[in-house]
Design a protein around this nucleic acid. Sequence first.
DNA 1: ATTTGTTTCCATCATATGATGCATAATTGC
DNA 2: GCAATTATGCATCATATGATGGAAACAAAT
Lengths: 216, 216
Amino acid sequence: MPTPLEKARKNPDSMKAKILLSARHLFGEYGYHGVTTRMIANEVGIDISTLHYHWGDKESLYDAVVTDIHDEIIGVLKDVEKVAHGKSMTTRLNIAIDTVCDFLFAKPEVPKLVVVSAFTKTRPHGIKDDRLSQHVPNIAIAMGLAPDKKGVSPRDLARVLAIANAMYSFASGESSFKQLLKVEHKEYVSIVKDTLKFILTPAFTQETAQNLAVRS
Amino acid sequence: MPTPLEKARKNPDSMKAKILLSARHLFGEYGYHGVTTRMIANEVGIDISTLHYHWGDKESLYDAVVTDIHDEIIGVLKDVEKVAHGKSMTTRLNIAIDTVCDFLFAKPEVPKLVVVSAFTKTRPHGIKDDRLSQHVPNIAIAMGLAPDKKGVSPRDLARVLAIANAMYSFASGESSFKQLLKVEHKEYVSIVKDTLKFILTPAFTQETAQNLAVRS
DNA sequence: ATTTGTTTCCATCATATGATGCATAATTGC
DNA sequence: GCAATTATGCATCATATGATGGAAACAAAT
């Protein structure tokens, strides 16, 4: 029994897939309550009833969007883990920043939706998604901050969150921040990557941190 | 001619002030479209018509909330500038992190609303607030990243944004992140401050060290 | 071609939502 | 006290919104 989401993934040209794509975009842009089923149907160029026919009610569609995005993120994280494994901390960080940023900037609705769903509630049921946060401990281990699942302290998790927050914030806020920096997309991405490396590398690089501790 | 916002500030016990407070809370929690005028009126314990009598339409009230919060933030930033002036980079950072975090955690609706208003659009007019970002250059100067208003590069601005993003993200996402870290509020605040210092201090003190090394 | 199953849209409904008119109550100034 | 002003709540409206029934169009299989 394939779910609607599985069907949409199987056939990217299907109506289900088109609806899912528009829903991702719009929910990311305006948030759950800021999007009406009519807006989605309109962007796809179909009637609302067609939308309901494929996805059921609004909440189901939103769930599908969140699940879809969640799975994509997990995939990217696993890619990073694979490529970064065994490398030095600096290299691991650079790979993580470059790979994740490329992904987030290629699909802007992903960071927007994650940020919105993490920071605001939906009314009235309060759709809660903690699946993403379940992967934070894995990142902590992959980054070499903790030896194993049991050895991950709240402090380690907070550091992983700091890294993730930084990337997601810059990606989600591109339209606002780009204006402030007075740069175009391409340069914005470049500056963001540089800034993230500038901020994160010293903190997580042992030698530098030790040198600083000695100096000061 | 005092505006409704000025009246509300003048008399904190007034109905206008009560409405403003509930509106801050609810808009921060659910976002613009996630809040109905009835929700606000209900939380205050009044009729919707009373709400409209005091604040006009929903958008005006939202504007007032954004302005109110904006002014508070500007106040805190000026405080930080005053206290941090002339101190070392490490001290400046510590003061900024402690002061701003204390403020953001004392009034959780502030970071939530800022993040939401920066990262999501409102429909249909797209209420855009770039007043806050106008202060970013000032922070760059106050932090010692640039000599004067003309010398602030996009890179400097991005670094200030990184600092601000980190604080706002941790404050906005407290409810999600606290759960993940499995700690209570007080410990969460402590961990966040430590993590911010851990991440930010090395980066910005290293640059200072590098600059000094280059000059000599 | 006929049947069967799938997809699409039109018309419509029930409720939610923003907003207002108006009568009444409370407050203020004198 | 009394008039004038301000504040509050009830009833109501127009539109927005989520959702559905059912007819028609389309597709696939025999």
